[in-house]
Simulated scan of single mutants.
Amino acid sequence: MLPPIATIIENFEFIEDWEERYRYLIELGRALPPADAALHAEANKVQGCASQVWLDLSVDRSGPDPRLHLRGDSDAHIVRGLVALMIALFDGKTPKDAAETDAFALYTRLGLGEHLTPQRSNGVRAMADRIHRDAVRLAA
């Protein structure tokens, strides 16, 4: 079970050592539920990531406001942690709120861009763009 995004941000700000931050990011990825075969469908694959990344975004319409539900996976430990970060940020938001959320700003705020490879940064941008594009489509 992933902690709320506010808790994740607090934990990142509390952890000063980057090796510990990497371990925490990997721990977040391990907190994701195991992926089923359907998640690994080609339609869910995020283009632009050096590692393999799959995201599935659906809408829960059972409440008064529709809410996004995200599932994700990656074949790389750190990237799976970045997927978990995206899920913690977007899961449960309305499509409109998700469309207005700047995921890359969070990535920058946490200092991840300074300590991860440019390929990882490009992958995060690709994930954020994919979620944003799907949220905009669902908000319309």
Rank of each mutant, 00 (worst) to 15 (best):
E20W: 09
E20L: 10
L116I: 08
L138A: 06
V124L: 04
S62C: 09
D75N: 12
P4K: 11
Y107I: 15
E42H: 10
A31G: 12
A126K: 01
W18Q: 00
M1I: 14
I9G: 05
L138H: 02
R30N: 11
L25M: 07
S62E: 12
S121Y: 02
R130G: 06
R71T: 09
R137W: 10
Y22G: 14
F104R: 00
D60Y: 05
S62M: 09
W18F: 10
I131G: 06
R137S: 14
A126M: 00
F104E: 06
I15Y: 00
V83T: 02
S58K: 13
V124R: 02
A98G: 02
E19H: 02
W18R: 00
G63N: 00
A105I: 13
P95R: 07
Y22I: 15
R71N: 14
P66E: 15
G111P: 08
D60I: 03
P66S: 13
R133E: 15
G29A: 07
L89G: 13
C49V: 06
R23W: 10
R21M: 09
L89V: 14
I87T: 04
V59P: 09
G92Q: 01
A37F: 07
I78C: 06
A126R: 05
E27N: 13
D65L: 08
V59T: 11
R125G: 00
R61Y: 13
L89N: 10
L70G: 11
I5H: 02
P64C: 09
N11C: 06
I26A: 06
E100G: 15
G111Y: 12
V53N: 02
V59R: 08
N44Y: 09
E16G: 13
